[in-house]
């Protein structure tokens, strides 16, 4: 059966992509705001819950040390595999978008 977090939601997608560099909670939100050109603004509870969930599944992990009381996270190898699978899936869907005009002519 498919993993319950798949296909990735917009929130999970952005967090995993943002965590290709190590960041703490609030910095994740700031980065996502930039990445999405201001269209995705995560709220505190959603971010906390998502971090907890991704960490539980081993797709992200805390990195030791750094900014004091703020916990810093980074994507894991497992998380990167998930992103690669999602990339394949989305590429295929995009290809269907692009093929639709040709199909109509057939």
């Amino acid at each position: 059966m498919k993993h319950k977090l798949l296909p990735l939601s917009e929130t999970m997608h952005y967090i995993l992509l943002a965590l290709r560099e190590p960041l703490h909670g609030y910095a994740i939100m700031q980065k996502i705001e930039k990445m999405s050109n201001g269209t995705v603004s995560l709220a505190a509870g959603t971010l906390y819950g998502a971090i907890e969930n991704l960490n539980k599944h081993g797709w992200i992990e805390p990195v030791s040390g750094e900014t004091g009381r703020r916990k810093v996270y980074k994507i894991t190898d497992k998380g990167i595999t998930i992103l690669n699978d999602e990339r394949q899936r989305l590429r295929h869907i995009i290809s269907l978008y692009e093929m639709s005009e040709i199909d109509e002519e057939v």
């Binding site: 929130t11 995560l42 709220a43």
Partner: peptide, 22 residues
């Protein structure tokens, strides 16, 4: 119990999945 000065983000959840869990 969480309180803040009202501004553009007045919610603690920003997607449906978070509300389902809540």
């Amino acid at each position: 119990y969480w309180q803040k000065t009202a501004d553009s983000q007045n919610e603690i959840f920003s997607d449906r999945q978070s509300y389902v869990h809540y």
